[in-house]
Amino acid sequence: MSKHVVVIGGGVAGLEAAGRLSREGLDVSLLEKDSITGGHLNRWFKLFPDRRDSSEVKDYLEGLTHANNVKLFTNVTIEKLNRDKDHFSVLTNDGKELIADAVVVATGFDLFKSSRKEEYGYGIYDNVITSADLEDMFRKGEITAADGTVPKKIGIVHCVGSRDEKAGNLYCSKLCCVTAVKQAIEIREHYPESTLFCFYMDMRMGGAYYEEMYREAQEVWSVNFIRGKVSEASETIDKKVVIKVEDTLAGRPLKMTLDLLILMAGMEMSEGGIKLAGLAGLKTGDNRFFEATDHHFGSNKSNVEGLFYAGTCTSPMNITETISHARAAVSEVVDYLKNS
């Protein structure tokens, strides 16, 4: 009888891991809390840096799981996860108990809830939206201000909920800078008359072709970059957003009225992940993400034998890195099952 592996989370990492494990001849169950798989891919429209459609990646991932007969359980959450001797018992909210020889945790990340940065007015001012809201607009094919008009002057705030002691997150989410650049270009493509401003503390464009995108945004799309942390936003009578920032390079405070303000929400450990950490006694770090046993050569290993991590439940990653990390988790699982 082939060994059974439970994969928790049906996002990029979970799909990749489940499909590959199945291909290795293992019996795989994939548990997803939503009704569909794909995780954050379902919300994102185009991906950086090549601007390909996110559905292409999703199709690849789901194709992988379908072709390999992964057993998929949707709308399930975990109520209990115990390790007895050499196997795991996973209890779900619908009362099922799955017995597994190994577990892969791929619970991913949550987007920072931007309303927590109250001074930016998300949820208070109509024309303050998040990067995810903007992707929704891209999907619908129309980018509008709250009153349905075309926004002309648009601001993008970097580091919302990342690198911010007040938000409780000291780390850099790594991908929001490039997301900001990508989204700025997309808006400019959509509305050539619009003017775009990115307000950043540092531009962190560390990835293949990211810096090139940054240059393109400046050269081709005339996106303006202003170095300064936006301190607060307020609203005018006609629902425009006024931001306050210091143009630190000019050394002067700057005030700007915008039709739309987009907040680059950072990545946080998912709520599901935090719950799971409590249930299974998994170690989390100061940043609340799962803490792998070794940052260099054990980034998939947890403090529980036979339980492995895949993807952004351990730290912010882009899709390329997530898929690589999931594949590494697969090889850890295979190794583990061979030796046990």
Binding site: G121, I124, E232, A233, S234, E235
Partner: peptide
């Protein structure tokens, strides 16, 4: 209060 716009509004 200027940093808690919900109160101000």
């Amino acid at each position: 209060t200027h940093l808690t716009p919900s109160i101000k509004n």
